[in-house]
């Protein structure tokens, strides 16, 4: 049989998927052991035990100064910023995408502006945001919105334009208005597409969140990582990175499952490719 026709079955597929993770873990543990054997005070590749200790200290013991569980308050702060930012971006993208994709007049007015604004490098205007919106929560959320919204708006507009033009004509022969087209034809069909656009933009949303927290914050996952960097605390940084990765992965998975559950008609033709 040709290589391209070999498809792994269920138990083997799971094993194959786990293999690289196990390999990475083993590689890390060997390297860590080797370095620690040479110098027990080495900070670059901490042992599993010291990472567990660090997580134990941050997640399950009250901070002596603030009385908070630092790990969880960092997570809450970061997630709040991220979700508000993504929520605002997604709402803007849905609204603007439907309007721009449906109405040529709206596209004529706003299309070029969105195209130009989406080219502004968000991190370059981060100082402006700090000056205008202060160092509080607002500037971090605004950075996420500015970083993700224009791209999402362009993407959503394109996805509306990708709907077959026959549908708009058909709706008119059913006596529908422009408003009906948006409400009953375009909106329900782009909702699953919105979820996939959010999935694609989650990565850059995390990027902007961590960047903003690294520069000015008093709590948050990105803030903590950049704070303990001064002490070379890899035993804190590595679990934090893993935690962020896990959160991002769970969000991605959640969005995908939600989409499959809510919009079965959208995924009907895609099952083979999944």
């Amino acid at each position: 049989m040709r290589l391209m026709n070999l498809r792994p079955q269920r138990p083997l597929a799971v094993l194959l998927a786990l293999l690289p993770f196990i390999a990475l873990l083993l590689l890390y543990m060997t390297a860590s052991d080797a370095r620690l054997a040479e110098n027990p005070n080495d900070k670059l590749l901490p042992s599993m035990q010291s990472m567990v200790d660090a997580v134990q200290r941050l997640a399950f013991e009250e901070d002596r100064r603030s009385g908070e569980y630092i790990f969880w308050s960092d997570t809450a702060a970061s997630l709040q910023r991220l979700l508000i930012g993504i929520g605002i971006s997604a709402s803007m993208a849905l609204l603007a995408g439907v309007l721009l994709g449906t109405l040529p007049l709206a596209r004529a007015v706003a299309g070029p502006v969105v195209a130009v604004v989406s080219m502004v490098p968000p991190l370059a205007i981060l100082p402006i945001l700090f000056i205008v919106f202060g160092l509080g929560e607002l500037s971090k959320v605004v950075l996420i919105v500015i970083g993700t919204a224009p791209v999402m708006i362009r993407d959503m507009t394109q996805r509306v334009l990708d709907l077959p033009p026959e549908q708009a004509i058909k709706l008119q022969t059913l006596g529908g208005s422009s408003w009906h087209l948006m409400l009953r034809v375009v909106l329900p069909q782009v909702l699953p597409r919105l979820l996939s656009v959010i999935r694609l933009c989650l990565g850059s949303a995390w990027l902007f969140l961590i960047a903003a927290e690294a520069i000015a914050a008093t709590e948050g996952l990105g803030y903590r990582i950049f704070l303990v960097r001064r002490y070379l605390s890899m035993d804190v940084i590595l679990p934090y990175v893993l935690w962020i990765t896990l959160l991002a992965w769970v969000m991605d998975l959640g969005l995908r499952k939600t989409s499959q559950l809510m919009f079965p008609w959208f995924h009907a033709g895609q099952e083979r490719n999944a």
Partner: peptide, 11 residues
């Protein structure tokens, strides 16, 4: 109207 394709709403 009935087109060759895309005449019905998939959702």
């Amino acid at each position: 109207i009935v087109f060759q394709r895309y005449s019905v709403f998939p959702h």
